[in-house]
Nucleic acid binder design. Structure first.
Lengths: 140, 140
DNA sequence: TTATTTGCAAACTGTTTGCACAGAA
DNA sequence: TTCTGTGCAAACAGTTTGCAAATAA
């Protein structure tokens, strides 16, 4: 579910330099429709720039996250996973057999979470939720 | 929400040795009603055994987890957090200001999650969910 | 030109592990 | 006695950082 990141605009606005590395990282992320880790982003970015360092990917990813353009996730596999920050909030279901990530949004769930927090005496400011499932056999 | 862990029974059943360190770790966990990290468990355990090593806490915690007596959580603060495995499933709400963890169980939520997974073509095998909130002012 | 960014390697955090010694059984 | 468990320090994985060289503006 990718959108686009306009790195040129971000650099212009912030007075940052539009480097080949930043463009490569953004290009990789913009054309990924999975939720790649830094290592994956780095591997994919080496196609465009065979010399790019992992440290640069970490720095760029942080830059984008702080600019609100990138969303960081923790799916519990030890490394951070990223996706372009869509303004439409959604949750994730992870296929435990393939690792594939399915995005979904359920308004009833969103509402329910807010109500639960309130019942406990809290205002909900954030939540994380991942469902883990196995694909149902089509014949079932 | 603590229960008890019978480490003597576990050791007996598994042919493991009942050491002072294992007893100290279990005692700490059994008398904690928060969700301590390994570091916290280690600090608390040094009261009973000033020489206990962090590595031992890691090993014991893993032993207990594999025995199904302990539950590991990831609240996103970088280190694993533990609590005694109650047979009653529940989720967590984390107070973002104090770090306090509130446990809750909402049957409607459990049901809804299962339905969502099914609608997406999956059988729900696990889920993780944490709500993050700020305490509502009592006067509101 | 020159201040920012990069690449590299070293540092850091949470966790695991190899090994010789300590200590339950 | 004997073999498991411990403490220690080294090893790990993911991530961050200091610094000198590279480069966008």
């Amino acid at each position: 579910m990718e959108t686009k990141i306009d790195i040129a605009a971000l650099c212009a606005k912030r007075g940052l330099r539009l480097t080949a590395q930043r463009q490569a990282v953004v290009e990789v992320i913009s054309s990924s429709d999975d939720h790649p880790s830094v290592e994956t982003i780095h591997q994919r970015a080496t196609v465009a720039d065979s010399k790019i360092a992992v440290a640069t990917v970490y720095r760029t990813v942080r830059l984008l996250e702080e600019a609100g353009l990138l969303q960081r996730h923790d799916f519990g596999d030890g490394s951070a996973r990223f996706e372009i920050n869509q303004d439409t909030h959604h949750d994730h279901l992870i296929d435990v057999q393939t690792g594939k990530v399915v995005e979904f949004l359920d308004p009833e769930l969103e509402q329910l979470q807010k109500r639960i927090a309130e019942k406990l005496g809290f205002k909900l400011v954030d939540h994380r939720m991942e469902l883990y499932g196995v694909a149902l056999d089509k014949s079932d």
